Amino acid sequence: MRQFVIYFVVLLFALTGCEKKINPMDPVKDDVNLKNKKLAVIYTDVNSRDSELVLINNKDKIEETQRFKYAGIVQVIKNPSGGLLLPVQLEDILIQIASNGEVNEQKIKTFPLFMETQKGYRLTTYNTAMDYGTIEILENGKKKSKKLDGLLRSATADQKYVYVYGNVNGSANVLYVLDRQNLKLIKDMTLSYGPSDCIKVIDGKVFLSSDNDNMLTIVTPDSWKVSYMKLPYTGPDRILSDSDSIYIAYELGNRITKIDRKTLEIQKSFKLSGQNTINMRMDNKYLYILSQTDLDEQPIKGAVGRIGIYDKQTGKMSDEIILPEKRDMLVQDLELLD
């Protein structure tokens, strides 16, 4: 995914203190109205402390925005207990928006690189140093953490294990398997393809993306067998699933591949309507594709991004939401709220 933030630069940002002069900001509100909102989109800038959360209503119209005086917010994450989480990748701050709209800031470790929340836990990887990172799990109100070699770009968990992808020395692709209870290292597996910005557990198997190849990595925890599935396009970057199918989006690609969940056979691929994907979300009927318009086939004047809404069965676009330019920021991520 194209982001303002380049992973190895975050340490230099803190050491040099380099940033543009801060633009005048609107006063930060104490709360955000999340009621009757359908989508949240985060804009951010890495060179000045300027980010903005945009909320879109059920009529696909921008209804509310909230500015934050931080650079490098590249994820907007739905909290299973309600509300939203916004980790500030260049600092030690987690912005929390409660279900009632109250906005709070929490101190966390410096340089959160990736965060995932599921019912019962929150996983965060941190860019601790140039050659290693930290994985942290928050579960039942208690935190556990462990240092691991490499750039820890993604993570997930099942009932037994925590899975962390590490890019070691800029070339080796490693899957770390940790005991969920104590974060003891169970296995570290060298993979043939990567890097991986997305890990998903589907039907007991671990699926990993590979930004530089046309392969999907599949690990079976019972036997630790590793297999690779060839895809029709290069750069599988996002993986989502419903009860019947697995959906693959490609990094800055204009195709979606649909895979049968039971047989793991490719059902079809469909072309997006002029978009090159940077992120994807899904509900029962539609795929929501986020793109940056300067990377799309036909840039839109006055717009910095757009969300294409595609029927999961037919692949046809049913609607489109245009995201307007906002100062020097780019759109980075989206989340479904209802």
Results as ranks from 00 to 15, higher is better:
residue 1 M to P: 12
residue 90 L to D: 05
residue 284 N to Y: 10
residue 226 V to I: 13
residue 123 L to W: 10
residue 71 A to C: 03
residue 73 I to C: 03
residue 168 V to G: 08
residue 207 F to S: 01
residue 6 I to F: 15
residue 94 L to Q: 06
residue 190 T to V: 15
residue 285 K to I: 14
residue 283 D to E: 01
residue 277 T to G: 00
residue 286 Y to N: 10
residue 18 C to D: 15
residue 22 I to E: 01
residue 110 T to C: 13
residue 337 L to Q: 08
residue 172 A to S: 10
residue 102 E to Y: 15
residue 129 A to P: 05
residue 253 G to N: 07
residue 267 Q to H: 15
residue 281 R to K: 04
residue 158 D to N: 13
residue 261 R to I: 13
residue 254 N to K: 12
residue 125 T to F: 09
residue 192 S to I: 11
residue 56 I to Y: 04
residue 273 S to H: 13
residue 198 C to V: 08
residue 152 L to I: 12
residue 71 A to K: 03
residue 62 I to T: 02
residue 123 L to T: 09
residue 231 L to I: 09
residue 137 I to V: 14
residue 324 P to N: 05
residue 298 Q to W: 05
residue 65 T to Q: 07
residue 143 K to F: 11
residue 78 K to P: 04
residue 104 N to L: 15
residue 276 N to G: 00
residue 40 A to I: 02
residue 125 T to R: 07
residue 257 T to P: 11
residue 194 G to A: 11
residue 181 Q to E: 12
residue 70 Y to F: 06
residue 51 S to N: 05
residue 308 G to M: 05
residue 94 L to H: 06
residue 251 E to I: 09
residue 38 K to N: 07
residue 274 G to W: 03
residue 84 L to A: 03
residue 70 Y to G: 01
residue 87 P to T: 06
residue 203 D to S: 14
residue 136 E to H: 07
residue 306 R to Y: 04
residue 44 T to Y: 02
residue 205 K to N: 10
residue 33 N to D: 13
residue 132 Y to T: 00
residue 219 V to K: 04
residue 192 S to T: 11
residue 170 G to V: 02
residue 39 L to E: 01
residue 298 Q to M: 07
residue 90 L to C: 10
residue 176 Y to H: 09
residue 244 D to K: 15
residue 105 E to W: 13
residue 306 R to H: 06
residue 148 L to P: 00
residue 73 I to Y: 03
residue 113 L to D: 02
residue 170 G to S: 06
residue 180 R to Y: 12
residue 2 R to C: 01
residue 104 N to M: 14
residue 118 Q to S: 08
residue 41 V to S: 06
residue 228 Y to R: 05
residue 150 G to N: 04
residue 186 I to K: 12
residue 161 Y to M: 00
residue 50 D to R: 10
residue 311 D to E: 11
residue 15 L to K: 01
residue 141 G to S: 04
residue 75 Q to S: 09
residue 203 D to K: 15
residue 135 I to N: 05
residue 322 I to F: 02
residue 133 G to H: 02
